[in-house]
Amino acid sequence: MADSTMLSHSRRESPTPRSSGRRHFQRYWQLYIMMFLPLCHFLLFKYAPLIGNVLAYRRYRPAMGPYGTEWVGLAYFERFMQDPAFWRAFNNTIILSFGNILINFPIPIIFALLLNEVRSKRFRKFVQTISYMPRFISTVVVIAILSELLSPSTGLFNRVLGQLFGMDPIYFTNEPQFFRPIYILTDTWQFTGWTAIIYLAAITGVNRELFEAADIDGANRFQKIIYVTIPSIMSTIMVMLILNVGSLLSLGFEKVLLLYTPSNAMVSDIIDTLVYRTGLANQNYSYATAIGLFSGVVGIILVSTTNWLSKKMSGESIY
């Protein structure tokens, strides 16, 4: 990230050679004091749990501290590798994630490109404001509204289907085959407008002269989108893709938990919900930590691999 530039800056600006360390602290001690409390907070709440991952290799005993009591090696890892529930959750996570990226990665780009084509500036602003409202809505509310809309007895959606196509009511939120579409489409609803902000900002930054040149060459609107706008925002698209692939395993855990019912468990049990159930519900702390650590490590590998690939192929990277 910005660290490489920071390095060069600090060399240039740094007013204190090593010998005047005391003067440095006399001048700047307040800044260190200022940092002290937040830094302690940061280390406590971000790094203590990170170190807490050692619990994956240690046996947990109640009231004996969060870091466990004795080393057990890879026992917990071996156990979940042989656990069919883990592999089911793993597959569900991968399928849901890829489906989600496949649908919800391109949609905000298309939405931004189309919105940029809207002539009236005021209508454009209005659409944008409305479109990111769902991002501020709690997942609980989204799922609550959804369950009323899709309710088989009184839901609006089933009534419309019934009146238009004469279909019998379907219990959407309970049928396993509808779980993935529901997850993905509620994400579309909630985040398309929000994610599009970044692309719209990138489109606004495109050099106007490129469009004028394309006009002179006789390009139509569609050609300008394909040959000018998209190539110009490619770096933004790549960065967003890296971030998306990097967070492949971290799905909207809370939403899955809210959509989870015993009858759709075969498709809706993902790694995070498995960790939650084995860890917090069944208090198998070490076992759940091992599963969580595994998915965290896979996540880091995914980020660095996509970042490396993208650097090789397009010169774009996030660090």
Partner: peptide
């Protein structure tokens, strides 16, 4: 930002 403590270690902390 890329690697966090996860649910269980945070809960236990």
């Amino acid at each position: 930002m890329f690697f966090s403590g996860g649910l269980i270690p945070t809960y236990l902390l």
